[in-house]
Structures are given as structure tokens and as C-alpha cells.
Design a protein around this nucleic acid. Sequence first.
DNA 1: CCGAATCATTACGATAACGTATCAAAAATA
DNA 2: TATTTTTGATACGTTATCGTAATGATTCGG
Lengths: 120, 120
Amino acid sequence: MPLDSTSSLTPNRLLKLWHDALLESVRRDTPDLSARQMSVLLAVYVVPPPHTVRGLSSSMNVSKPAITRALDKLCALDFLRRKPDETDRRSIVVQRTVKGSVFLSDFGDSIAESLKHLDD
Amino acid sequence: MPLDSTSSLTPNRLLKLWHDALLESVRRDTPDLSARQMSVLLAVYVVPPPHTVRGLSSSMNVSKPAITRALDKLCALDFLRRKPDETDRRSIVVQRTVKGSVFLSDFGDSIAESLKHLDD
DNA sequence: CCGAATCATTACGATAACGTATCAAAAATA
DNA sequence: TATTTTTGATACGTTATCGTAATGATTCGG
């Protein structure tokens, strides 16, 4: 029997999954990112490149300065990297880093763990 | 074939699910809660009562003033309610509200929707 | 009883994030 | 080439949250 046929992921159970995984990340000493910051980070790792400030801004429906600030923090954490766009030097390209990959990979594992113990 | 046997919820796919659902909540005009605030709200709705400040504080590994402040915001939104504990009048009991139930119910539906379209 | 412990909250100064307006630099347009 | 547009970043004042330390109220223990 496949692991995911954890009875059926109803909205209520998904809410519990969200709670468990979120609680784990709040408890841990991991850098606590706002919803926006986390959303930016995930976008870069989950959505195919390239990623620019204006692209993230429009897809998230958030002002450009807010994206710039989120990038400031995520770059300071070394979770993302800004790289000048050679073809259009007004733009920058947001890239992944090893540290960011590890952070999100751990987070993904944490969600999977929460899913595994959803009935405990 | 059950809906949830969506191939198999690997950590990477769970990360994408998290991204999609989080993006939806960032995009929407819904009140944006910090991770801690969301965690408090979810705890009250997902974990069996009773809920007190000290209980939330210790389970989340967060200072009591931080919980009080989160409650300030969540009560202002009418997502939670403080009720004096009759048996021990030093304590308060945190309770659910209709508005909070609706908010979380909608959020659960949103996650379910993201799960449904995980492969789009 | 009366001091000590426990509960939630408030005070405080520091830090972080917000939105709007503006900026310099580069590109597109004319 | 001169003007306009676009891009990402900064400036500015405001609001929100933080952690530590106190505060008032209540309960517990001797």
C-alpha cells in the first residue's frame, strides 16, 4: 500500500499537515521567513527560471520594493544570489545557492515527515 | 483511483504544494499572518482544547509575550477569542470564532485545490 | 495568613517590513 | 541623438514585531 494513500487528504487533514509542518519550522532555530520571503524563495526553486524582480513582483502581486527587500534578506542568508543579466543590464537574474537548496530540501523532508505521522 | 494517489507525495512535490498554496494566500487580499501567528491560529483549530498562553508558548517554543501579541492580532481580526478561565482566574482560554473557522476552512480548501492541480 | 510562585500582560528600546515616491542606469523609441 | 520607458534599488515616514524585563492579579505553600 502506497504511503500517500494516507486515507484521503481532505482539506481538514491538509490543514493539520500544514499545522504540523509549520509548527516544526517555528520550533526550530531555522531563520524565520515571512510568508512573502518564503514565497519568493520557493518560487525560485520550484518554478523554472529565469527569475527577475519584475517577474516575481507580478506573479506574486506584490510591489517591486517588497521583492527587492525580500531578496536582500534571502541573499544575506545566502539562500539566493543576484546575478546581473548580460543581455539586459537593467535586469538581474535571481539564482539558487547550495545553502538555499539544503534549506528547502530539509523543509521538504520535514513536510514529508509530518505527512507520515499525520495520524499520530 | 483515489485522488490522493497523485503519483506519490515526495518531498519535492510537497515543496511545490507548499509553494502553490502559499502563493495563493500571498496573492489574495487575505490578512497576511506571520508564521507564528498562523501557527497559533492553526494550533487552536487543530489541536484539542483547552489552549492557554503558556501552553501555546511552550509547545511552540516561543516566548509568552510573543504569544500575547499574536493573540492581540488574531483577536483583532476576530479569528480567535480570549475567555477568562473560571477555575483559575490568572489564566485565559483561547477559543475559536466563526470568522476564524471560515478563514481556515477556506485555506484548507485552497490547499486541496493546489493539490488537485499539482501537475498543471 | 503571608511570602513565593505563576499567570497574562505591558513597557521599553531595537530591529524589520511596509507602501509610495523617487532615483540612476540602461534600453527602446522617435 | 534626444526623449520616453523600463528595471532594480533607495529614501522616507509609518507600522509591526522582536526579546528582555518589569507589572498587576491570582493561586499556592509553609
